[in-house]
Each structure stands twice: as structure tokens, then as C-alpha cells.
Design a binder for these strands. Structure first.
Ligand SMILES: NC(=O)c1ccc[n+]([C@@H]2O[C@H](COP(=O)([O-])OP(=O)(O)OC[C@H]3O[C@@H](n4cnc5c(N)ncnc54)[C@H](O)[C@@H]3O)[C@@H](O)[C@H]2O)c1
Ligand SMILES: NC(=O)c1ccc[n+]([C@@H]2O[C@H](COP(=O)([O-])OP(=O)(O)OC[C@H]3O[C@@H](n4cnc5c(N)ncnc54)[C@H](O)[C@@H]3O)[C@@H](O)[C@H]2O)c1
Lengths: 211, 211
DNA sequence: TATTCCTTGTGATAAATTTCACAAATCCTG
DNA sequence: CAGGATTTGTGAAATTTATCACAAGGAATA
């Protein structure tokens, strides 16, 4: 159950295992081998075992892993057994898509406060939430004790919004704006590099002369 | 100008350098050092140089890199100097957000065909495009010679849609559904692991007992 | 219970990626 | 034009990550 130094990649894969386990569980199976898990995730089975062993010994030789127990364990390791209140900054194209996404709620992420700086939008109701003025981010999230923020505003405004979140006591930020946010080390930022992904695709196709 | 074996990470960073170079260029500077590029990207300067040298020698000792030339070069290396027609599968929350996103067009990705399987949606117009029946994906993209597809449908339907894209001759897929698509090796898939990112954030906060 | 089969956990090995550190190239100043 | 200041490109070293391969544990069967 080492807390030592777990590769970022392993953590990301944990999330993938959890999703696959959910599918296997729903299909009615009770055990699963690292080989099968690896196959479904497109990985090497030793890697699956290594990843899991970072957190403890959950398997039984000759049998594999108990699906529901492993699922529950990973959920707990990732802190996904509790509801996590979230603030959304920027109720535009992407922000609204995230707001309507059921998958977040299913995973325990509850969007509780939403902000924008557009006078037309502030005060309106979206998905049962009143859009608040961006200037009140700090006060509001402090009041509601929200510790996770999602940034979906243009990159020119992202750093300033991040600062307000941090001032309000935010602990983690999921950032969709294409910019490296500067934050104190006690704050964790995870970037969703959406455009980069598309550009990577372009590169690979271009390299193979497919465009 | 080696085509040898370029790390995936380097390719993703290329995209980041390009974005930063754009900013520096717009700010009116003409040259930039690997040190500054590294600082802005949050990386080591040797890494920046190594990344760039994969593709050629663009720098001048004592001076650094010529901003606009490097920007243009990276754009070309990534195949982003040409318009790339794209098909979008799934005009739901996320699909509509992507459809309205200007950043794609700016990068040369032009969404030309959009598909859904919802009878209510098929035939309607969205952003100037008629939503087409998902059953016609193969025919349509073959006709229009579209080589990149974006999948924004539930994961249960994603593999079947991917198959139709492949049948229509697609070369690359940007996949937002949380599932590993099985595709022939001549097709490139890039996954946007959105939920995984949020779950990673949960893990890091949880580990530090911040939730 | 003995035997066979399967699968874990893990040390060793390999591969990939990052960082260091410095010679060589070029710029800039006086 | 000399000399000092920079900054590149790059081998070598260090670090990180992935894979191999196998002993040992446990299940299943007879
Ligand atoms: N939409 C996409 O598909 C997509 C894809 C990749 C990246 N992104 C990135 O995500 C971010 C949002 O994209 P979008 O398409 O939703 O943009 P958008 O313009 O549709 O929405 C941005 C919203 O943020 C609000 N806003 C602007 N400044 C603000 C501020 N200072 N405080 C609070 N709210 C503010 C605007 O009023 C608007 O409602 C951008 O950084 C974009 O680059 C979006
Ligand atoms: N919206 C988000 O913020 C978000 C976040 C993370 C991941 N995702 C993933 O992105 C995908 C789309 O999410 P969403 O929120 O837009 O869902 P959504 O339900 O809003 O939209 C899905 C759309 O796909 C259409 N569709 C369903 N089956 C189809 C088929 N076989 N062919 C063509 N169209 C079909 C539906 O009619 C609907 O219009 C999902 O896989 C989801 O898990 C979404």
C-alpha cells in the first residue's frame, strides 16, 4: 500500500481499469485475470499487475482478481467513493457540454456553482444552477467549500480565473484552456490538451502521407 | 529531418511549442531561445532542443530560434498548413460544443459532415450542416473523401461507428468515448481521456487528503 | 491427496525518455 | 577584429517506464 512514487501513467490507467471492471461486473463475471484486463485495455499483463501492486495485493494466484472488490478498491484509492463538489468557470460551448454530461455525476463530481463574465449570461439559470458573476468566484467557492474547479474559458482569461479559484481555496483544477497555468505547488492542475490531440492526429496522418 | 522514431510525447510537445511560438510572435518578438521556450512550457531546455532536432536544425547558436520560421516549420511538420476535412459522429452535448469551436477551424480542421442516429436530429441543420443518418457514414465520407473522424457518441455505439468510418476509408479518429477502439493498424486513433483526467485529479487530491 | 493447470507478484532486463554538461558556432560589444 | 557572452546540438549518464520470465501460490479435477 505504498504511497511512494506512483507513475502518473499508472494513475491514469487505474481509471481505465476501473471502467473496464465496471463493464465486466455488469456483464455478471466475478473474477478477472490480469491478462484479460490487459487485453481489454490494450496493455501488457505484467503492467497491469505492476500497476495494481503499487496499491496492494488484490489478486489470487490461479484465479485472478475479484471484480467487484477490485472495482471498489480502485474507486476508494482514487477517492471516488465520495461526492466531490465542483465549480465550473465559463458557461460557453464546452462548459455547457460538461454541465449536461451525466458521466460526471455518475463518478461523483457534482457541479455546484457555475460562473461566467458575460452580462447576458450572469443571472440566468442553466441545468438548475444560476450562472454567477465571475468576480465572485473566490467568495462563492470559499462559502460552499468547493475544492475542484473546471476552467472552460478562453486562455486569455484562464490565468486570472485560476488565481480567483486559488484565492478561494481551490485544491485542484481541470483546465481545458490551452495554456500552462501558474499555480502554487499545493494546487494540482490537470490539463485536457484537446487541440494538441487533434494536432497529433494530423501529424501522424501527415507523416504517413494520408492527408 | 529524420523520420526515424519520434516519441509520442515529443509530437504532443511540438503542438505546445507551436502555440507558445504563436504567442511570442504576436507579441512582436523575432527570436526565442530554447531556455525561454522551455520555461513557458514548463520543461527542460535540453528537451526542447532535442525535440526540435528530431525534425531538423532550426536554431542559431548564440541567438536561438527564429520565431516565425520555427512556427511555420512546425505547422508544416504537423501537416497543419493544409485544410483537413473532418466528420463528426454524434451531435450531442459534446459534439455540438466541438462543432461550434472556432479553434478547430483556425487550425485547419473543417467539420464537413455530421452524423447522428436520433430520428429527431437527423435532417436538422446545425451550424450550417445537415445532420445525416449514422447509417450513411461510410458512403458519405467516401464520397467526400474525408479522412478524419471525431467520435462523440456513447461508448456502447462507438465501435460500430468506428467500423463504419473505417469502411468509408477513414485514416484517423479522435475518440471521446471512454473505450479502446479496435481498428486496423493503418488507422490511427487518438483518445481524449476526459473522465480519466478528472479521476486523476480526484486521486491526487484524495492522496493529499484534500477532499 | 496428488497432480495439473493457471495466474499472481516480482526480480531482472530492456527500452524509452529526460537531464546533464560541454564543444562548437555565432552574436555582440568595444 | 578580438574577446566575452550566449545558445545550439549532442554524446553520455541518469532516470523512468515497460516487458520478460519464472518461482510460488492457489484452484480444479480426479
Ligand atoms: N469548445 C471546444 O470544443 C474546445 C475544444 C478545445 C479547447 N477548448 C478550450 O476551452 C475553452 C472554452 O471553449 P469554448 O468553446 O467553450 O468557448 P466559448 O467562447 O464558447 O465559451 C467561453 C465562455 O467563457 C466566458 N468567459 C470569458 N471570459 C471569462 C472570464 N474571465 N470569466 C468567466 N467566464 C468567462 C464567455 O462568456 C463564454 O461563455 C477555451 O479555452 C478553448 O480554447 C474548447
Ligand atoms: N459531454 C461531456 O462532457 C463528456 C465528457 C467526457 C466524455 N464524454 C463522452 O463523449 C461521448 C458523447 O457524450 P455527450 O455528452 O455528447 O453525449 P450525448 O448523449 O449528449 O450525445 C450523444 C449523441 O450521439 C448520438 N448517438 C447515439 N448513438 C449513436 C450512433 N450509433 N450513431 C450516431 N449517433 C449516435 C445521440 O443521438 C446523441 O445526439 C460519450 O461517449 C461520453 O462518454 C462526454
Amino acid at each position: 500500500m505504498e504511497n511512494y512514487k506512483i507513475p502518473k501513467k499508472s494513475v491514469e490507467r487505474l481509471s481505465i481499469y476501473k471502467r473496464i471492471l465496471k463493464g465486466i461486473m455488469d456483464a455478471g463475471f466475478t473474477t478477472v485475470s490480469s491478462r484479460e484486463l490487459a487485453e481489454r485495455a490494450g496493455l501488457n499483463s505484467a503492467q497491469v499487475r505492476k500497476d495494481l501492486v503499487y496499491f496492494g495485493q488484490f489478486g489470487t494466484p490461479g484465479m485472478g482478481y475479484h471484480v467487484s472488490i477490485l472495482h471498489r478498491t480502485i474507486t476508494k484509492i482514487m477517492g471516488l467513493h465520495k461526492k466531490i463538489p465542483v465549480a465550473l468557470i465559463g458557461v460557453g460551448n464546452l462548459g455547457q457540454a460538461l454541465l449536461s454530461y451525466q458521466g460526471f455525476k455518475e463518478r461523483g463530481f457534482i457541479i455546484e456553482s457555475i460562473f461566467d463574465n458575460d452580462r447576458e449570461k450572469v443571472g440566468k439559470i442553466k441545468n438548475g444552477l444560476k450562472i454567477m458573476d465571475e468576480r465572485n468566484i473566490s467568495i462563492e467557492i470559499k462559502k460552499k467549500n468547493i475544492r475542484v474547479g473546471i476552467i472552460t474559458i478562453p486562455s486569455s482569461a484562464a490565468q486570472s480565473a485560476a488565481n480567483k479559484l486559488i484565492k478561494g481555496g481551490i485544491k485542484g483544477i481541470l483546465n481545458f484552456a490551452p495554456i500552462e497555468l501558474k499555480v502554487p505547488s499545493r494546487t494540482t492542475v490537470v490539463n485536457v490538451a484537446l487541440c494538441e490531440k487533434l494536432e497529433m492526429l494530423s501529424y501522424y496522418l501527415s507523416k504517413r502521407k494520408l492527408l
